[in-house]
Design a protein around this nucleic acid. Structure first.
Lengths: 112, 112
DNA sequence: ATTAATACCTCAACCCTTGAGGTATGCAAA
DNA sequence: TTTGCATACCTCAAGGGTTGAGGTATTAAT
C-alpha cells in the first residue's frame, strides 16, 4: 500500500507516461498500472477520473468517445504535445528528488 | 522547482532520514536539505514546522528545547524507534514506486 | 434472473502545503 | 545606536487534491 501523498504525486507522471505509448481509456489505465507495478499500485476509478479530467482541462491530454467493433462505448485519452513536455518536466523533477533521497538514505554516497 | 504534491510526499522520509543521523533543529534541517539537494529542495519554515509537529504528534520524533553554550535557544528533534520503523516503511514504498516509474518511463526494461 | 465485472460519473469530507502574517534574538553596518 | 538582516520559532485562512460513499448503465456468466 502506498501512502496518500506519494500516490497523489505519482498519478500524473504515470498516466502521461502510459499515454505517451498510445491511446487508452480509464479502466484500462487502472489495469495496466496494476499489472506493471506488480500490484503495488491499485488505483480506484473515483480517484482516476478527476485526475484525467484535470489533465484534460490543463491541455495535457485530449479525450474522445469511441466504440470499436463489437465493443462498448469508451472514453479514450491521448497525450498532447504539451503533455509530452510536461512528462519530461516531471521526469526531471523526479530524478532530482530521487537523487536527493538516495543521498539522505545512504549518506556515504555523498562523501567520497 | 518541485511540484506541490511531490514536495508533500518527500518531506517525511527526508526529515526522518536526516534525524536518523542525529539531532537537528528546524532551521538546520532546512539548510541541510538545501545543501544536500544542490538547491533543488528549498523548504520554507512555515511548511516545515507543521510537518515537524505532525511527526511529533504521531510519535515519530521527539523534541526538546536546548541551549548550547553561547548559542540561542533552539528546539531540537530526535527520531524515535517508531520513527526508524516508519523510515524503513517509507523507503520500501519509494523503492517500489520508483521501480514502477522506471518501467513506464522505459518500457523496454519490462520486456526481455 | 441475478450477480459480478466493466465503465463512467459526482459530491462532501478531509488532509496538507502555501502564503501571509506575527514574535523575538543576535549581529553587522551605517 | 539604530537600522537592517538573518536566524528561529509560531499561527491561520485558503486552496488543491485524494478518499469514500454514493449513482448509472452495459456486458457476461451462473
Amino acid at each position: 500500500m502506498i501512502s496518500k501523498n506519494l500516490a497523489a504525486a505519482s498519478t500524473k507522471p504515470i498516466i502521461l507516461a502510459l499515454l505517451s505509448q498510445g491511446e487508452d481509456y480509464g479502466y484500462q489505465i487502472i489495469q495496466k498500472v496494476k499489472t506493471l507495478s506488480g500490484g503495488t499500485l491499485d488505483w480506484s476509478d473515483n480517484m482516476l477520473y478527476p485526475v484525467l479530467r484535470r489533465l484534460e482541462e490543463t491541455g495535457l491530454v485530449v479525450s474522445r468517445w469511441r466504440i470499436s467493433a463489437g465493443e462498448r462505448l469508451r472514453k479514450y485519452y491521448r497525450i498532447t504535445e504539451t503533455g509530452r513536455e510536461e512528462l519530461e518536466a516531471e521526469r526531471r523533477q523526479w530524478s532530482g528528488l530521487i537523487r536527493s533521497l538516495q543521498l539522505v538514505w545512504d549518506p556515504l554516497l555523498g562523501r567520497e
